[in-house]
Every structure is written in C-alpha cells, then in structure tokens.
Lab assay of single mutants.
Amino acid sequence: ATNIVGKVKWYNSTKNAGFIEQDNGGKDVFVHKSAVDAAGLHSLEEGQDVIFDLEEKQGKAYAVNLRIK
C-alpha cells in the first residue's frame, strides 16, 4: 500500500524504532531508523503527521518512503 496517512504513536531514538498509527484505523505500523534516515530526518516526534508506504517482510508490516505531511 502507498501514501498511507498516519501519526507517530511513539518513536524511541535510543532503540531506533517506533510505531505509526494509521489514520484509516489499520494496525499500527513499525518504523525503523533506516526509514527515518532515508527521509533525511533525525528523529520523529509523537503526534507528528506522516505519509508512508507499507512494505511487508517476513509477514510484518514496515513503514518505508516516509515523509512529513
């Protein structure tokens, strides 16, 4: 899926990971530091509006192509 709108639920820069809550009510999506880095960002803030694509690896959904809304 592409161009999904959501809000950062939480992001821990020590653990280099967090979750994004989908505005469409879907399951929360894992976001890794690699996606944050690829977006040219240093970190994510709780409640921040984002747009992202979903990629599945080994049955788990990940946020990729992250951008700030």
Rank of each mutant, 00 (worst) to 15 (best):
Y62G: 03
V64K: 07
D28C: 11
W10Q: 03
A61Y: 15
L54S: 03
V8T: 02
V50P: 00
G59T: 04
V5D: 08
K15T: 10
D53G: 02
N3T: 05
S43F: 12
E56F: 15
V31M: 04
K7V: 08
G6R: 00
E46C: 12
S43E: 10
I4E: 03
F30E: 06
T14I: 12
N65F: 04
K69I: 15
E21K: 15
K60I: 10
V29H: 03
G18C: 04
W10I: 05
V36Y: 02
D53W: 04
H42D: 12
V8F: 08
E46I: 15
A38V: 07
N12A: 07
G18I: 04
E46H: 13
H32N: 10
S13D: 10
T2C: 13
V29A: 04
A63M: 02
Y11F: 09
S13K: 14
A39F: 03
V5S: 15
D28V: 10
G25T: 07
F52A: 02
E56I: 15
E46W: 12
T2N: 10
H32V: 06
K15H: 11
G40A: 05
G47H: 05
I68A: 07
A17S: 14
N16D: 07
K15V: 11
A63K: 01
A61W: 15
G59H: 06
F19Y: 12
I20E: 01
I51Q: 05
D53R: 02
I20V: 04
V31I: 09
A63G: 03
S34Y: 09
D28G: 09
V31W: 02
K33S: 09
G6C: 03
I20H: 00
F19H: 04
V64R: 05
I68C: 07
Q58C: 14
L44Y: 00
V31L: 07
S34K: 10
T14M: 13
L66K: 00
T2Y: 14
K57G: 08
T14K: 14
A38D: 08
V64C: 06
Q48H: 05
D53T: 04
V36H: 01
N24Q: 09
E55P: 01
A39Y: 02
D37V: 15
L44M: 05
K15Q: 10
K69W: 12
A61L: 14
E46A: 15
L66C: 02
E56W: 15
G6N: 01
K9E: 00
R67Q: 08
E56T: 13
E21R: 15
V64T: 10
N24D: 10
G59V: 01
G6I: 03
E46D: 09
G6W: 02
E21Q: 14
L41H: 05
V29R: 02
I51F: 06
G6H: 01
V36M: 09
Q22R: 15
A61H: 12
F30I: 07
W10M: 05
W10S: 05
K57T: 10
E46G: 11
A35K: 03
Y62K: 07
T14Y: 14
A35T: 09
D37R: 14
K57Y: 13
N3V: 04
A1H: 13
K60V: 10
A1Y: 13
I20S: 00
F52P: 00
Q22I: 13
F19D: 01
V29I: 11
K33H: 07
L41E: 04
Q58T: 08
G6A: 03
I4Q: 10
T14C: 14
Q58L: 12
E46K: 15
W10L: 04
H32P: 07
H42E: 12
L41C: 06
Q58M: 12
L41R: 05
K7S: 06
G47Y: 04
V8A: 01
S34A: 09
K57F: 13
